[in-house]
Simulated assay, not measured.
Amino acid sequence: MKYREFGRTGRSVSEIGFGAWAIGGSWGDVSEADARAALNAALDAGTTFIDTADIYGDGRSERIIADVLKARGGERPFVATKTGRRLSPHASEGYNKDNLTSFVDRSLENLATDCLDLVQLHCPPTEVYYRPDVFEALESLIKVGKIRNYGVSVEKVEEGLKAIEYPGVASIQIIYNIFRQRPADLFFREAKRRGVAVIVRVPLASGLLTGKMNAQTTFAADDHRAFNRNGEAFDKGETFSGVPYDVALQVVEDIRRLVPGDVTMAQFALRWILMNEAVSTVIPGAKNADQANANALGSSIGEISPSTMEELKAIYENRIAPHVHQLW
């Protein structure tokens, strides 16, 4: 495992982190035993960055993380959580000091810690980015010692650019993968210039970029890949990166021919993300130990050649961009 600086926080983190959405919910049934095994495997492989959220399994993900870390002992990895999606309705006015404090207190309890490494606003309504009082509330949580850093998980490039105008924003979490290349156009450059860490989520386009899906693949009723294809539950771009499933399957076959024989397509897709030096860490999910171990290997495979990178860019521009580029 290789490591990178996490923006201006003074911390370094593993290039491959652990995305803990799958062990919380909305990815089909994942037993607690498998969830624990997946997280332990990632940590054994050198992962030092864990990303979760208070809403994943209504706190289940956070509590599993706390239990695993307690059982392991030793130096605690960097644990990031997210907040805001517990609001109902999920509206801008709910992002206030009282609610944010209450949510943070709950995450402190779930994660069994007295200070959170990083709290991220969880894809808030666009209006929130234009409310300095929200970011002042986060500053107040730093002052009282409940959080060390704060950031924002965004849906759109424009939201990321707006968020990093606030000097206290330490990190931005954003979707970036072979099917979602727009962040590299401007956002990454601006984030790097300002010393803002970049956390990449949905790196495998909800599993499409593993190359293991086909037209007959089925998903459990409680898997967002079954119930959110058209944005029925949350932003459409979170599921298959917003790419129509049939189009994506065709393009996966174009990508497959570029993958070296000694690596998996998933590892290749993770390495593609890490080719951009603005990326601090990438957070694939894992439902079991085998997936976690395979993900971790994405840090150790060789660089992708410039010619292959150009081919992947052309595939995106010609086949995928018309469906997603200007939307997110």
Rank of each mutant, 00 (worst) to 15 (best):
D117C: 06
S107I: 02
L138E: 01
T126W: 13
L121T: 03
C123Y: 08
Q120T: 08
P124S: 09
A112Y: 04
L116E: 01
E136Q: 15
Y129E: 05
L111M: 07
P125Y: 06
L121E: 01
F135W: 03
F135N: 01
D117Q: 08
E136I: 12
P125S: 09
S107F: 04
F135H: 02
L118V: 02
E109V: 11
P132S: 10
L108G: 05
L118A: 02
P132Y: 09
P125K: 07
L121I: 06
A112Q: 14
A137W: 10
C115N: 10
L108E: 02
A137I: 12
P132M: 09
L118F: 01
L121D: 02
C115F: 03
V134Q: 00
A137G: 14
C115L: 04
R106N: 10
R131P: 03
D114L: 03
Q120C: 09
C115Q: 14
T113K: 00
V119T: 02
D133M: 11
E109Q: 12
F135K: 03
A137C: 12
R131D: 15
P125A: 09
Q120N: 12
Y129W: 09
T113D: 00
P132H: 10
A137F: 11
L111T: 04
N110T: 06
Y130S: 15
L111R: 03
F135Q: 02
L121S: 03
R106E: 14
E136N: 13
Y129G: 11
E127G: 07
D117P: 05
